[in-house]
Amino acid sequence: MTRVVLYCNQFFGGIGGEDKADLPPRLTEQVVGPGRAYRAVLGDRAEVVATVICGDNYFAENIEAATREVKDLIAPYRPDLLFAGPAFNAGRYGIACGAVCKMARTELQIPAVTGMYEENPGLDLYRKDIYIVKTGDNARSMADVVKRMTTLGQRLLAGDRIGRPDDEGYYSRGLLANEVANRTGAERVVDMLMHKIRGEAFESEVLAPAYDRVAPAAVLRDIRSAKIALVTDGGLVPKGNPDKIEVATATRYGRYDIAAKDTLDPADYEVNHGGYDSRLVRQDPNRLVPVDVMRELEREGVIGALHDWFYSTTGLTCIVEVMKGLGKKIAESLKAEGVSGVILTST
């Protein structure tokens, strides 16, 4: 018999509304709220062994701690499968459901499924990590959503191959899966084009990347006391490329000492980048990483200081997710080194 654990908020758990939103996680072996719908669908194939109920504010304000507390409550029940929500369009609840499912998957190593409306903020936070079933924006469709979540959960538990998001009713996780097609790429693409020309629906096999919108960094108030760093994706490295940064599709960056330098001497540097003709930069690396004029501006007091290191990687055919990770590491490192502004030069 499959052992199922559920997660729901204080409202669906029947404890109360916003006045109970600060409630810490608690566990009950009673079947409450959505549990009745799950039990109806599961029938005698599975048993709901426990339900964790937690206040939405409590969870959203202490995501890491709350996730740990939920884990500690449910782990002794040795669940095979976890369902959270569905959260519909409830934002804090959606975030909690996402976090609990991710924990179940990565820490308890069991399948977990939740359900959300397309505008729920929990969706973008967790869609890559977990299966999130599509729902409407309110609880009227509870029975149908629970049925679809249960079906998906049991298929995951059975190790079935899960099909495309649109066919299975969950949100795309951004994964690519190989499929055997009975028509060639040329036939399929002409078919898509004809559909497009006729104004009919078609589905591309290659999704255009969706880039984040990044909020601009806060304005620099006092440049005369600011430490400014130079960062580049133009692949400038000391001779010998000590960090072995890749010539394309980089996964690494380097950090190089310029504390004693008034300028970058071409004898000391090379360019490790397969995407542009680097002769001019090799002739004079200041054309990419302007140490010479930054040092002058530092002496003149225009800026507080030029940072002692410049950072470099190779921005060529890169994977945005990987570069996001590098960017985050570089930014954390710069912050720890007391840098308050960055000039990023790109080829």
């Binding site: 542009y276 680097s278 001019l280 930069v281 004079d284 200041n286 054309r287 990419l288 302007p290 030069t345």
Partner: peptide, 11 residues
């Protein structure tokens, strides 16, 4: 800036 191959320079 200036050119892809020489963003902060003009030879």
């Amino acid at each position: 800036a200036q050119k892809i191959v020489s963003p902060l320079g003009n030879s």
